[in-house]
């Protein structure tokens, strides 16, 4: 195995290991979307159905379910990427940066680590399906895994681009408020993206998570705004651009 391949694998392995060991994190990251789904979903669902008409095709809880899976992927991916900043604060990043592997390989290893973890965390959300009468078949699961992986890979790469130059976790709040939450709210996770004010429609259109959530909805519920191929192409294109940016930026980090 080439040196950089081995480096990517090593960094991936550490992230997966650490995730697996951090049970409180797994539980927390499962409960939080569940709260959105069941509490917010139930509360809003009573009134919203009529307002959105046919756009949600029935039950509000069912409608937001794929969006909530998208939220879980979003948070998990960003969190994984931001762990770079944490590694920098505790000094561990130096150990990685003086290793005889190229810097870009560090970024790629992180991106794969974050995506793998997000696939696991996103798939875990499927345990809620029976409670909201969504039927998950093996075929759905098989389609879902690569879809989740691609979404997670793109978002982790954005996170790496941001984290590469961050020197303290104080910036985390800024990222939450200016990147993560807007991405979530503007993704169509909680409401249909039809008939939006123009400014919002534009933001929704440039948000990569929009296509992720749409793809998830298509696979899980069988209806979507765009075809799966279209959604996946957009996300992949975005992911490739972002990982290249991450590789370049990481190469320049001192």
């Amino acid at each position: 195995m080439s040196r950089n391949m081995m480096g990517i694998y090593t960094i991936w392995l550490r992230d997966v290991r650490r995730f697996w060991r951090d049970r409180p994190r797994i539980i927390g990251a499962t409960i939080q979307p569940a709260l959105f789904l069941f509490l917010l979903g139930t509360g809003l669902g009573r009134g919203i159905v009529g307002a959105f008409g046919n756009d949600i095709r029935g039950d509000y809880l069912t409608f937001i379910y794929p969006g909530i899976i998208g939220m879980s992927i979003l948070f998990t991916s960003i969190f994984s990427a931001i762990s770079i900043v944490w590694d920098r604060e505790i000094g561990f990043l130096k150990e990685v940066m003086v290793a005889p592997i190229s810097r870009w390989a560090v970024a790629v290893g992180k991106a794969f680590g974050g995506s793998t973890v997000a696939v696991f965390q996103g798939s875990l959300m499927l345990i809620f399906a029976p409670f909201i009468n969504v039927h998950i078949t093996p075929a759905i699961v098989i389609t879902l895994i690569p879809v989740i992986f691609l979404i997670a890979f793109s978002i982790t790469s954005i996170g790496i681009v941001v984290a590469a130059r961050m020197h303290s976790m104080q910036g985390f709040q800024i990222i939450m408020n200016f990147l993560v939450l807007p991405m979530f709210f503007l993704s169509g996770a909680m409401f249909p993206i039809t008939n939006l004010p123009r400014w919002m429609a534009i933001l929704v259109a440039i948000n990569p998570l929009t296509y992720g959530v749409d793809a998830l909805r298509g696979v899980i519920l069988g209806f979507s705004n765009y075809s799966l191929i279209a959604n996946m192409s957009i996300i992949s294109g975005f992911g490739i651009a972002m990982i290249i940016a991450a590789m370049i930026i990481f190469g320049k980090v001192e």
């Binding site: 550490r14 650490r18 060991r21 951090d22 590694d87 505790i90 000094g91 561990f92 130096k94 150990e95 003086v98 290793a99 005889p100």
Partner: peptide, 16 residues
């Protein structure tokens, strides 16, 4: 990098 080993002034282990 392949030729050197380092013990940094500040801690650099993964404590987890």
């Amino acid at each position: 990098r392949q030729s050197i080993g380092l013990v940094f002034q500040e801690p650099s282990l993964d404590e987890k």
